[in-house]
Design a protein around this nucleic acid. Structure first.
Lengths: 222, 222
DNA sequence: CTAGTTGCAAAACGTTTGCCCCTCT
DNA sequence: AGAGGGGCAAACGTTTTGCAACTAG
């Protein structure tokens, strides 16, 4: 009963990419990448550029190569199945903070056979592996973003629903002191600002230093 | 036939106040939210003027047993039905930040005929009237608290799930500047700290909780 | 009296899980 | 070959809503 489509029965029109990479002789390089990635996690940052592009900046990555998160997955010893690869790629290429629904749309655009349950399971797995972080920014749906090394905070544009990240190390330290003042050891903190873009301003003094990636609404920064 | 019980069939049952078992045992490890107000809960409707501070006289107090939030409701022109009155009272007397489930328990303790749907509707109505504010502090359930004039922030005890409020006006001002730096007009902000109580007694001179500044929601002037 | 409110049940919504097949290693 | 991942649907916990009975003003 219930014949179930599997992920390699038929591919969509595009797929010159991932299958070839896996079935060809590149498996050795996959292993090597994972090894170097472990070194990367241990602090040997530059070694990886031997395997990845020298410019592994965030630009549009050729689909052939492993996405950043995919590499983190293999480094964590996760079994890399096709759905996970797609989800990892979608996450790696996301410039914003997508919620699960949005992620589902994007993974479906790549491969519509990936189920929502798998997406939830994968995203939770990634979170437990320390690859992703879950955020609850106002709405009912959780958002995910790659977990960074340091805390950062969020500024939500109430009109466009876009999210800007920012750092405020002094505030972070201050919050640690506040918690300590109440006798608490601070485990985590959230700072979330909700605001609207100023339209008719006369002076904008200090433009933000380019950490924001999602400001497509306005041009006055940058 | 489905006869539906209505709210004036019987009033004021259940005079015995029973506190939940939650307060047993852990007092040392939990945040010492002041228990004083909790005794206001449940029952004692007739004698509430006894509870009302006789030494506190500030201007004309209109109603003898109207709760603070009930007054705000009538001031907002809301139709004051019996369920709303009960909910308003429970909210007014809540010293903590109850979630909807907790509110449901408390309203049921006063009048078990009040349905969950009504509670949700009422609480949403109060929020839209600017009387309450909804918070999403970590857990899945929303919490409610009376809306205050100024922003305050929350420190969540990860072990006991209690919430401490604190002020940090400088940080608030700083966040306004941060938003402005990105070209935003700050509408609201959330700062939420999650931590655990420090056990081992380092010296740590008197934590500020003794001064009740941690728990007053502004209602109870003493 | 009538517009507005309530209780009930069911739907909506986001998320998780049981089951059994299937795939990755 | 076998441990574990995936699809599907059903379960889940929280919140909303359709509806008829009811009530506050």
């Amino acid at each position: 009963m219930n014949r179930r489509p599997r992920h390699d029965e038929q591919h969509r029109s595009d797929p010159k990419q991932r299958r070839t990479a896996r079935s060809g002789g590149l498996e050795g390089s996959t292993i090597a990448i994972s090894v170097s990635l472990k070194h990367f996690l241990l602090g040997h940052r530059r070694v990886i550029s031997k395997w990845a592009r020298p410019d592994r900046r965030d630009g549009p990555q050729p689909a052939l190569m492993e996405s950043r998160i995919e590499r983190l997955c293999t480094a964590s010893g996760l079994r890399m199945t096709h759905p996970r690869r797609v989800i990892a790629r979608v996450l790696s290429e996301a410039p914003d903070h997508p919620d699960v629904h949005e992620l589902y749309q994007r993974t479906r655009a790549v491969d519509p056979r990936i189920s929502l349950a798998t997406l939830y399971r994968t995203v939770r797995l990634f979170e437990q592996s320390g690859i992703l972080e879950r955020r609850n920014l106002g709405s009912r749906r959780a958002r995910y973003e790659p977990s960074g090394e340091h805390d950062h905070f969020h500024l939500v544009d109430l009109d466009s629903d876009k999210v800007i990240e920012f750092d405020e190390p002094e505030t972070e330290a201050l919050m640690h002191r506040v918690a300590a003042r109440y006798g608490f050891d601070l485990v985590s903190l959230r700072i979330e600002l909700f605001g609207r873009r100023i339209r008719h301003n006369t002076e904008s003094r200090t433009p933000p230093q380019g950490s924001s990636s999602t400001t497509n609404t306005g041009d006055q920064v940058r």
